[in-house]
Write a protein that binds this DNA or RNA. Structure first.
Length: 602
DNA sequence: CTAGGGTTAG
């Protein structure tokens, strides 16, 4: 027993077991307890071997039993440890503090809240209510089930018997429950914070969409002098990815390099996801090819990344490679694959992979899968086949699917059907303005102006909720946010001038703006006053102002790009000799030399 | 003689 535990392999442990048998020492409770304690370390190892050892012990003492409980807790059937616990009690062996930490661990892992509550009773009965380890295990149990009131109760019962682990378990519980402000409060109150405290705070922000706060918090963490670890950096990569902040993501990447952290699967996957979501799909590919090891999620991220960039064929090629390597796709893998088909208009392939998913892999299609298929078929003009998919669904369809059909009706000129679906959708959700916009647009295409006015009036009267359009651009070490209209940015005068320059130069190049707002083809932003300048145009104008000539302009926007802005952006890349990458609400557009990577299909 | 808290993706 000289080697540290974590350096001992399963086969070495088995050798030790063999020698114990040869020396006829098998059956000794303390010795076998040690053996079990080694077996408990191997992650999710099956418990049958451990159990066969435990069974040879004539009179198992609490030490040996604790370690067997621990083996169960680490296995795939953690709740088995409770069965053993009851036999321990039957044999009149008194459990100790170790027994309860292992038992509670088992309950947390096996989602046995009811069982955990019973164990909690035994904790009190046997007098371990003030043991820090036991209390932490209890708080962890309630935290992992989002029972924050119970966690808090345990915490409040003896507030002095706690350490940083106690506080961290509390943070995690409220974080999981989405109570970010409580996490913040506890984080401020706690007497000392370690890396895990910071990580939990960061994850609370990222998981609940408070991405700006996460960036701020990470800055404070660095100022406090704490060295971030793998979990910190993976979380921050996720924040950078969600916000599409390439410069920030790159700075995290350089921290990873400077800390000499190994390229683990987690780090690698998070990095390639970050690059993909920041528009650098080639960088993602490079990373992917150079990763020493990958797992299914790595492939998922890469396939989804390629799909979001409209590289449908490449995504499918990668998926075929995945299958050739003998890997087993998950439901998410097929979300990526079907998305790839839908973004690239690959109808035949889409049908093929949808069938493969259900027939060859027995994966039940979820709403996302149906969404891809309906979108794919609808956009390709196969509106009735899209409807058939919805009608044959095994689950009840989300209205979003009908909204896709509605959109297809508008694009492919099916006004009567569109009118029916549009009215039905408005009935279902009168507060969402997107449906009114689509319906009005369909009437406009049919030149039914009275209907256009009627629908728009209805929308105004009902005070529908609308999502304001915004665009982000990272420049000069800051994030600049633009909303439709202008005047809020400190350089708004220059931006205004730049917009005029753009207009003049595009006009000289022959661009004719789409004058009638009701004729606007696509656009969730139609609902915004059409006189206002869409947010991405402000961001592009600003980008032209502040970035060096010839450099690429990267924009993120929350809604989908409207047809008009899409046309203008194409022209700008030609007239100004710039590359512009826009991540909109549904995908990436790489604009270059007057063309877009989506080939106007999105 | 044995123990604990936090990881990403659509």
């Amino acid at each position: 027993m000289i080697l540290p535990r974590n350096l001992i392999s399963l086969s070495q442990t088995k050798q030790a077991h063999a020698r114990i048998i040869v020396s006829s020492l098998a059956g000794k409770a303390s010795l076998m307890g040690h053996l079990l304690s080694f077996l408990a370390i191997f992650p999710s190892s099956p418990f049958d071997y451990s159990l066969s050892i435990y069974r040879t012990i004539k009179n198992p003492n609490v030490f040996a039993s604790n370690n067997m409980i621990r083996c169960f807790a680490k296995s795939d059937s953690p709740l088995q440890s409770l069965v053993l616990y009851s036999s321990v009690l039957r044999n009149c062996v008194r459990p100790n503090n170790y027994s309860f930490t292992f038992l509670l661990q088992a309950c947390s892992k096996g989602l046995g809240l009811d069982e955990g509550v019973q164990v909690h009773g035994h904790v009190l009965k046997f007098g371990f209510g003030e043991d820090v380890y036991v209390r932490n295990a209890l708080i962890h149990l309630y935290s992992s089930c989002c029972r924050t009131e119970s966690s808090k109760q345990v915490f409040d019962e003896s507030p002095h018997h706690c350490d940083v682990v106690t506080w961290n378990a509390m943070l995690a519980g409220f974080a999981r429950d989405g109570q970010v402000s409580v996490v913040e409060k506890l984080f401020d109150e706690m007497p000392g914070r370690d890396v895990i405290s910071w990580n939990t705070m960061l994850m609370a922000y990222v998981h609940n969409g408070n991405l700006g706060e996460a960036l701020e918090c990470f800055k404070r963490m660095r100022e406090s002098g704490l060295v971030p670890d793998e979990a910190t950096l993976v979380t921050m990569l996720s924040a950078s990815a969600q916000l599409s902040l390439l410069e920030h993501g790159r700075s995290i990447h350089s921290i990873i390099d400077s800390l000499n952290l190994p390229m683990t699967i987690s780090i690698g996957t998070a990095l390639l996801d970050m690059y993909a979501k920041c528009g650098c799909i080639e960088q993602s590919r490079l990373l992917f090819e150079n990763m020493p090891r990958r797992e299914v999620s790595t492939w998922n991220v890469m396939i989804c990344g390629l799909a979001s960039h409209g590289l449908g064929k490449d995504a499918l090629t990668l998926f075929e490679r995945f299958l050739n390597e003998g890997l087993h796709p998950m439901n998410v893998t097929f979300v990526g694959v079907l998305n790839a088909c839908s973004r690239a208009g690959l109808v035949k392939e889409g049908r093929h992979y949808f069938q493969m998913m259900t027939d060859s892999y027995g994966i039940e299609p979820e709403m996302e899968h149906y969404g891809c298929m309906v979108d794919l078929l609808g956009r390709a003009g196969l509106v009735f086949e899209a409807i058939k998919v919805i009608e044959n669904m095994a689950i009840s369809p989300d209205p979003v699917l009908w909204a896709m059909v509605l959109c297809a009706c508008r694009i492919h000129g099916l006004p009567e059907l569109g009118e029916k679906i549009g009215n039905r959708l408005i009935e279902l959700d009168p507060t969402y303005d997107g449906h009114y916009v689509q319906l009005a647009s369909i009437y406009a295409n049919s030149r039914k102006w009275e209907d256009v006015v009627r629908v728009r009036r209805l929308m105004a009267e009902r005070n529908t909720s609308k999502v304001a359009g915004w665009s982000l651009i990272e420049a000069q070490g800051k994030v600049h946010r633009f909303v439709a209209g202008h005047g809020e940015h400190e350089q708004s005068l220059e931006i205004q001038k730049m917009l005029e320059i753009i207009e003049t130069r595009l006009a000289a190049a022959g661009y004719v703006p789409n004058v009638s707002p009701v004729l606007h083809d696509i656009g969730e932003e139609e609902k915004e006053n059409a006189i206002k300048v869409h947010s991405e145009r402000l961001a592009i104008a600003f980008g032209l102002l502040v970035t060096g000539p010839g450099s690429c302009i990267r924009i993120v926007k929350n809604l989908r790009v409207c047809w008009d802005c899409h046309e203008v952006t194409k022209m700008i890349t030609r007239v100004f000799g710039r590359e512009i990458i826009v991540r909109d609400g549904s995908r990436f557009h790489h604009f270059k030399e007057g063309k877009c990577s989506c080939l106007d299909y999105w």
